[in-house]
């Protein structure tokens, strides 16, 4: 018997009697912008409410006046990044401005998939990350989030900038990934 079959046989032999699968109750919660903002700030991020998605470019210029290497499919005058972009180009990216699909008010997490990332590494290799999100796409908690997002090839919830507390429990923002995360919301 190969390892697969013998592991499965052992599991079958040793498992307890079937216990029923419970249904998940509908956990309701606060999906207000105030709650979303609070959670983002708690995770070390920053939220800016825009009037329209057209304001993105102006805000990016204000936030990163000296940034030269910007990758985005939302604003103009940027470095083209796609799934086969070279590592040498990717590692020089200062700011990435990408779409987020959905936001979670309870923890400030934003869902984005490979389709929004331009390159799978971009949201992680960039020095600063900006995610642009439609206001209508804010849900209260993870239960609602998982009922909406589907398992694409690769998808990530991102909550705040990359961080670590591995040295004496001191919080350091900007571990391996982005040193800051800014969420820009807009109404359609």
């Amino acid at each position: 018997m190969n390892s697969r079959d013998s592991i499965l046989a052992q599991v079958k032999n040793n498992k307890p009697a079937l216990s029923p699968l419970v249904d998940l109750p509908p956990f309701e919660g606060d999906c207000s912008m105030a709650m979303f903002k609070k959670s983002i700030e708690l995770s070390g991020g920053k939220l800016i409410e825009m009037n329209s998605v057209a304001d993105t470019e102006k805000i990016i210029l204000e936030l990163f006046p000296s940034a030269k290497q910007i990758a985005s499919d939302i604003i103009r005058g940027t470095i083209a990044v796609h799934s086969s972009t070279d590592n040498i180009v990717l590692r020089q990216i200062e700011v990435a401005v990408l779409h987020g699909q959905l936001g979670v008010a309870e923890n400030g997490a934003i869902w984005l998939t490979e389709d929004e990332m331009l390159h799978r590494t971009l949201p992680f290799i960039t020095q600063y990350l900006v995610l642009v999100l439609k206001k209508e796409m804010i849900v209260s908690n993870m239960h609602h989030a998982y009922s909406i997002v589907v398992p694409s090839a690769y998808g990530v919830f991102i909550s705040g900038p990359s961080k670590t507390a591995d040295i004496e429990q001191s919080l350091v923002i900007g571990a391996h990934g982005p040193r800051s995360l800014t969420i820009l919301t807009y109404q359609e």
């Binding site: 309870e106 090839a153 690769y154 919830f157 991102i158 909550s159 900038p161």
Partner: peptide, 17 residues
């Protein structure tokens, strides 16, 4: 750690081409 969620919750379903 007392966070409401980890910074990254990553779902790997299919490999990149």
């Amino acid at each position: 750690t007392g966070q409401s969620i980890t910074t990254y919750t990553s779902h790997f379903t299919k490999p990149l081409e």
